[in-house]
Simulated scan of single mutants.
Amino acid sequence: MNQPIKHYRSTLGLTFDAQMSTAFCQLWRQLGAVEFPVSVMDVLEAVCPTDSCGILVYYRQRKPMSLLHRFNPVERKVPADIYSTGPYALDPQYLLFLSGCPTGAYWLRDVAPDDFYSSEYYQTFYSQTGVADSIDVLWRIDDDSALVFFMQRNVHSPEFCQADLTALTMVLPMLSEALTRHYQLHQPLPQQSSEDKTHQQVECTLNHFASSLLTKRERDVLLYMLRGYSSALTAEKLNTSDGTVKIHRKNIYRKLDIGSQAELFSLFISCIPYARPDEATDPLLQYQSSKATTA
């Protein structure tokens, strides 16, 4: 009697060395305990080594909240908490969360705009953190929140590769099931205060920055500039021509009396503290008024 033919296939494997084995054992040991998310981070670091990493909670209506941050302070030129003061609003991975992306591992190079690495957001803020490359492992809690394990390599280390992303994707289903069970056993995620003035000011600045000087179309172009989109990709997004976008960019510089994207980024960030969420007013006016008063 003929035996049924078995179909064999090779599989991509992970090395269960001492670090990996210890990390997974600790993960199950901490299930339902307060330190469980840290154990998830330890597993991810065993799968894919990093120079710095941490855990954030992303909210749709509030600023991100930091639960853990491991970094090398020698590499950083900006404070660790500066991200939550406003720059997060221009972060490609935060914007991906806002778009409703599902649970998954997201490599910066796959989600960033085409001009991100030459954008002023990158030059003025992102590169000052010492980070050259990152992967976010995002676990979706619900439509309005997500747990984010960010993994980073610094400017002196090799960038991530496709094998790193594949390995993280392999372990994610296990971690996702463990996270689901953990939050069934444990208390809900910590919540930011409902009175989150910073996020309200950031949202107000995004909605009204330079509205007193620019047309709606110019403001559309301005937001794409801040996020690191080239003229060509901005034109594609706005269904117009590259030449038209370049004209809008020149008009933006002229009307705001600036000469570079660096000045534009700095001006945007400077206006955030002057935004008035309860008023549909341009925070740039309040910022300029404050400068005039102190001059």
Rank of each mutant, 00 (worst) to 15 (best):
A112H: 01
R60L: 14
A167Q: 08
A33M: 13
L27K: 04
S134R: 13
D257G: 05
L95V: 10
L68D: 04
K255D: 07
E263D: 11
L14R: 14
V111D: 08
Q30S: 13
Y106Q: 09
C161E: 13
F160P: 04
R276A: 03
L44G: 03
S230V: 02
K237L: 13
T240E: 09
A146G: 05
T169P: 01
D143A: 15
R109W: 00
S21R: 14
M41C: 13
R60D: 07
T293F: 14
V148W: 10
Q261W: 04
A178E: 00
S194H: 13
H199M: 11
F24V: 15
A210P: 07
P73L: 08
R254E: 11
S10V: 14
Y122V: 00
L284Q: 05
H199D: 09
A112V: 01
P188H: 10
S230R: 07
Y287R: 03
R60C: 02
K255R: 13
L179C: 05
L264W: 04
L238W: 07
Q152A: 15
Q187I: 04
L175G: 03
D220H: 15
D91G: 07
R217L: 03
K6L: 14
L67C: 05
P188Q: 10
F150T: 05
A33E: 15
L256A: 07
F150E: 05
L31D: 07
T180L: 12
I135L: 08
G32M: 04
I272N: 01
N2G: 06
M65N: 06
E236I: 03
T15K: 13
G32R: 00
Q201T: 12
E263P: 02
S231F: 04
T215K: 14
H182R: 09
T50M: 08
Q288H: 09
G130S: 12
Q152R: 11
R62Q: 14
M65R: 15
M174N: 01
T166W: 07
A146Y: 08
L96D: 02
Q61F: 13
Y274C: 06
N154I: 08
Y83C: 03
Q191K: 10
M65W: 02
D143W: 02
T281M: 13
E177H: 11
K291G: 01
Y121M: 05
A105E: 03
I135W: 02
H248Q: 14
A23W: 09
Q19R: 12
P79F: 07
Y274L: 07
F150P: 02
F150A: 02
G130Q: 12
L185H: 05
I141P: 02
A292V: 04
R181K: 13
F209E: 01
Y58R: 00
A167P: 00
